[in-house]
Design a protein around this nucleic acid. Structure first.
Length: 516
RNA sequence: GGGCUUGUAGCUCAGCUAGGUAGAGCAAUCGGCUCUUAACCGAUCGGCCAAGGGUUCGAAUCCCUUCAAGCCCGCCA
């Protein structure tokens, strides 16, 4: 059984309305690792619905959190906003309503594209509308109990005057600088390091925020959460998940939600992703170089508790080809791959929206990488495919769109991530090179043979070999010569296929030019 | 010191929640007309399943111990 089915079945057994929750702080680019939380939940959600369960999928944007520091991707000037809620800080690009919106919207767009549609809650709205008021009151009434739980379980020392509430200073608008002096319902008197002393009325929304370790359990109760995955960093003994489970039971009188711990996604050669260190791949970037279904596939094929090593280089091509292979297998075109577990379910869960009824058109992804560097646009690629009999039927509009999208992805990948070894450019003019005697011989002979050569890979391949044999030119040298006059580099795609994809007249002219 | 997760072929991973002859993809090697490159096809190679012990007729799989790696057990999310 697929892992998502196993978890869904567990939830289903409880026979209650389920709320599957996810939550990410939009304090920076939301990356592929964060995406795992969403997609893991989405998979379980889909399986649960399929079984006939009653389930809702929600996403909470923690946009009332304060900005912690000036991250490397922020301008220096943001120093003055540190400590303020990210929903109240201006947008870095100026196009969004707030700092939080800036990162949140790009993420929400990615979600749409990847076929995930959770009900979206925004923490700053919930706080400002007063939806947290009851939870805040309960937390403050139970200050001692919460203090004990936190001290016992996480072994941390909590200051004497501490309250489970971070006050938003009325004057400096920071949430991290105030210390409470006295709490008497509903008023908290506080002092801020900015020098301000004042009071807040907790019956008013948005005057402050529960600290994370309390906010989380409060939210479980409020939204009746029954399941929430969490990253392995939070799932440790003494971590937020641990203290949260106690607080929700002992303070909020609600059972802790079921849990799945997911592992990190590592970037090949770089280790874990950290937005703060610039080693993260944002969901945006990811979707610009990978078809959404392939991205889903990457996460669906692997159990959540396994780390994933993502390779933005050649590994990406393998991943896409692997996906295509699974697709062919799903439609019965290819034999089942033995090592592939839960193939059907994995394929279905990889679809952002609907499951295709028939096999989509396939062109090996690696081949596309070559073609696109020759032809640039899908329309031109199509001409080549037709001329060379690699494409003999008319494509459906769906297939057309898919291929166009793939072309965009390959372009982006080539521009930003592809290793130099796969890159080449057919030079519009003869590159400056010196042709020696041997090469001259080879090209002369090739030139004279071209008119009667059939422009198909095999034949092209053959004449290259035949000619170099006749002139006793090492075959490697023959290939190099061709790459030199066409690409200006010493190697390239397999010559026969490569040349057949180029226009014969163009090749003839180029050789003539080189012989001058 | 404590917790969680992971450890299977050169690499990325299945197989572990049914205990029954170790699997896939990629890489590598060889072949596919006298054919090395980056479409493609076929074949081959490749593993003491991290190590040790236990349960069992039988263990990659269940149990215990050890080792290694990653993350956490301050603040903040």
């Amino acid at each position: 059984m697929h892992w998502a089915d196993v978890i869904a079945e567990d939830l289903f057994k409880h026979n209650i309305p389920h709320v599957l929750a996810t939550g990410i702080t939009p304090s920076g680019p939301i990356h592929l690792g964060n995406m795992r939380e969403i997609l893991t939940t989405d998979a379980i959600y889909r399986c649960l619905i399929e079984k006939g369960g009653d389930a809702e999928f929600i996403y909470i944007a923690d946009d009332f959190d304060p900005l912690r520091k000036v991250y490397p991707y922020l301008p220096e000037s943001y120093e003055k906003y540190v400590g303020m809620p990210i929903s109240d800080i201006p947008c870095p690009c100026g196009k969004h309503q707030s700092y939080a919106d800036h990162y949140l919207y790009s993420f929400l767009n990615s979600l749409k594209e990847i076929g995930v549609q959770p009900h979206i809650y925004r923490a700053h709205e919930m706080y400002k509308k007063g939806e947290y008021n009851e939870a805040i009151r309960i937390a403050l009434d139970n200050t001692e109990k919460i203090r004990q739980i936190l001290e016992n379980i996480s072994k941390r020392q909590i200051p004497k005057n501490w309250l489970p509430f971070n006050i938003l200073c009325t004057r400096c608008k920071r949430m991290t600088k105030s210390t409470p002096i006295l709490y008497e319902y509903p008023i908290i008197e506080y002092k801020c390091t900015c020098g301000y002393e004042g009071e807040v009325d907790i019956r008013q929304g948005g005057v402050g925020k529960l600290p994370w370790r309390v906010d989380w359990p409060a939210r479980w109760k409020m939204l009746k959460v029954t399941f929430e995955p969490c990253g392995k960093d939070l799932a440790t003994v003494g971590g937020a998940r641990d203290t949260g489970a106690h607080i929700v039971e002992e303070v909020y009188n609600y059972p802790p939600p079921a849990l799945v711990v997911y592992e990190f996604i590592l970037l090949k050669g770089q280790g874990a992703m950290h937005s703060s260190k610039g080693t993260a791949l944002s969901s945006d970037q990811m979707l610009q170089m990978t078809p959404p279904k392939v991205l889903r596939f990457l996460l669906m094929k692997q159990q959540p508790n396994k780390h994933i090593v993502f390779d933005t280089g050649l590994g990406l091509l393998n991943l896409v080809d692997e996906y295509d292979k699974i697709e062919r297998t799903y439609f019965g075109i290819e034999d089942e791959i033995k090592g592939m577990k839960d193939l059907e379910k994995t394929y279905e869960l990889s679809q952002p929206h609907t499951i295709p009824k028939k096999l989509p058109y396939h062109l090996p992804y690696r081949h596309l990488v070559t073609l696109i560097q020759i032809a640039d646009t899908w329309n031109d690629i199509k001409k080549i495919l037709k001329r060379t009999n690699q494409l003999t039927t008319t494509l459906s509009p769906d297939d057309e769109n898919r291929m166009k999208q793939r072309c965009d992805h390959v372009h982006y990948w080539l521009k930003h991530y592809a290793p130099d070894a796969v890159k080449f450019k057919v030079q519009p003019h003869l590159p400056k090179i010196n042709i020696d005697e041997q090469q001259h011989q080879f090209l002369t002979h090739l030139y004279s043979t071209l008119p009667e050569t059939k422009w198909i890979p095999e034949d092209i391949h053959n004449i290259i070999y035949t000619i170099s044999e006749q002139h006793q030119i090492p075959i490697k040298r023959a290939f190099t010569t061709l790459y030199q006059i066409l690409l200006g580099q010493t190697n390239g795609p397999r010559a026969g296929y490569f040349l057949s994809n180029l226009d014969k007249t163009f090749i003839t002219q180029r050789i003539a030019e080189a012989l001058k």
